[in-house]
Design a protein around this nucleic acid. Sequence first.
DNA 1: AAGGCAATTTGACGCAGATCAAAACGGGCG
DNA 2: CGCCCGTTTTGATCTGCGTCAAATTGCCTT
Lengths: 262, 262
Amino acid sequence: MKHKATKGRQANPPCMATSLHVVEIDKLKTACSSCSLHELCLPAGLTPDEIKSVDQLVNRRRQVKRGEHLYRSGTPLQALYAIRTGFMKSCVLHEDGREQVAGFHMMGELMGMDAIGTNQHLCDAVALEDSDVCEIPLDDLESMSRQIPSLQQHFHRVMSREIARDYGVMLLLGSMRAEERLAAFLLNLSQRFAARGYSSTEFHLRMTREEIGSYLGLKLETVSRALSHFHAQEVIAVQNKHLRILKIDSLRELVGQHNCRA
Amino acid sequence: MKHKATKGRQANPPCMATSLHVVEIDKLKTACSSCSLHELCLPAGLTPDEIKSVDQLVNRRRQVKRGEHLYRSGTPLQALYAIRTGFMKSCVLHEDGREQVAGFHMMGELMGMDAIGTNQHLCDAVALEDSDVCEIPLDDLESMSRQIPSLQQHFHRVMSREIARDYGVMLLLGSMRAEERLAAFLLNLSQRFAARGYSSTEFHLRMTREEIGSYLGLKLETVSRALSHFHAQEVIAVQNKHLRILKIDSLRELVGQHNCRA
DNA sequence: AAGGCAATTTGACGCAGATCAAAACGGGCG
DNA sequence: CGCCCGTTTTGATCTGCGTCAAATTGCCTT
């Protein structure tokens, strides 16, 4: 529980990847410097030298197959995880076994921060497609951020942004109507895909309608109906999980105006 | 924007307190060491020596009268604030001017963490009763937490707990019925008052029904009706803002069972 | 290619909670 | 003390979304 000044852990087993060449495994270890995500991820804004130091933090990568858990609620916090590729959800669990999706996470995002306070994970993290995450032991991150102020600062920003995101979700759940929620959700996805260099108007929904509904505080039927309605209005084009935004401004207008639920 | 190794700011104007003796002003400056909240607040778990160092962080105290703002949405982040006495709310603002209560805050709690990511406050912070807060400049907190690992660790825990709290609110807003939400809310208040040495069963609601409703994603009439219903069942006794919990277990049962909204 | 299961869509209906309205209450101020 | 205004309560009605149900589609397995 006390701070350990562990600095790098070269002795760890290389990784759990299954069928990779040695060369690739080696590349895996020198993560951040060569990672295309370092402008989005934890090392954002660091100098190349600093990023080299951060490489030592990410000593292990882990593959999580579609449907598998990265961690489970109640489990002790082992590390934080940065998503390198793939798509995940986190679910908060009710005492009575029911669950609610608390967020969807894509590459460059950090998961597990909710567990720092109690050292126990509060949610399940489940891969919605085959994913690849970097394991970042918290102790190491803390000791390194004592040495690299800009890393420390960036880590704080990342945590803070998670809080800000949560406030946005609270707003959505507390005061938006079904179609507004869905519009806000689609705009959010769009923007995040765009930030990663993907199309902001055409993408694949990796989650089911039920998962979208759980996240938005709606039933799957309502999600389906709202999508159909948007489709009928030609605001979007949906076919199963493939989605294209046709009139992004219409979505924006929808989110802006709160007809109901003052 | 870069880290400044500022360490203490003894030169600041003492404080904005209005009618205090010099002795008291002086006492105000040596905040944490003599503060009865240090087990709840930021210095929790530090050694007496470490707390002395932390005293330098809290170089200013600020009084916020009932109804006044501590900070406003959009304003640049000046500092984090630890509540010493009083009671506050934070409100997220819609673009269209509508607002939603994102949280209620009581003594020992830290406010402003949502602003670290963008350096801009995301919510308004308003005092619901005359309050007294400690100003903690973020730069100073960061530089000191580089020197005192247990401070760093505790700060991370505090931020993480805010994230965990938000997840709880998301759960509440996304999947509980009106009376469950209210029960969860009352239990939460009860527990937080208890942690501060106040009665867990009898307290004063400092916020209006409308503010409760805003926080819980309900209309004030619904809040009022739910309170009346609990009262009729003799689960609680409410008179205006005075509230007594008579059957705390009934409230707990209510939160446990999710009749609706799977 | 066929079969089966999960996901999705669509319709009909009901209800929790929003909305509208009005009365009662309480607290601060002249 | 009494007035005024914001807060709260309570009732009546309306509606968005949940619930139930059934048909359709797509995907994965054999």
